[in-house]
Amino acid sequence: MKRSILLATAARYLMPLMLIFSVFLLLRGHNEIGGGFVGGLVAASALMLYGIAISPAALRTLLPVEPRLLVGLGLLAALTSGLLPVLTGRPFLTGLWLKTPLPVIGKVGTPLLFDTGVYFVVVGVVMWILLSLAEEEAK
């Protein structure tokens, strides 16, 4: 695949911005437009933009962990958020909230952990699928 210098340069700067935006979407998703699904998709798009503009291999070196690890972590986070209330004797997946809101993030509770899990699963799944295909293509 021929690379466009313009796209590659843009991707270098766009990618971090989009990632930050995706985290922003995730955190405010409970009160405003956004959420784990959208955040995860935006993050995945950002990473794939980088992967296509520069190269899948470059994206792979950039990623600190394997995408499938993200999937596992995400599922684990979602499951943990469901099991935490069970430990306190409430039904599975009951929302538990800290009394005092944290700075920047706002109110923190198990639904946020759940949403983070969704975020990671979505990023992981999309990256896993597309990166595997891109690497297959690059062979």
């Binding site: 699904f37 979505v122 799944v125 699928i129 295909l133």
Partner: peptide
């Protein structure tokens, strides 16, 4: 619909491959 859209991506990817 929100989850359906995301799932349909997974299904499409699987079908394509």
């Amino acid at each position: 619909i929100l989850t359906a859209i995301v799932i349909s991506f997974g299904v499409t990817a699987f079908a394509v491959v």
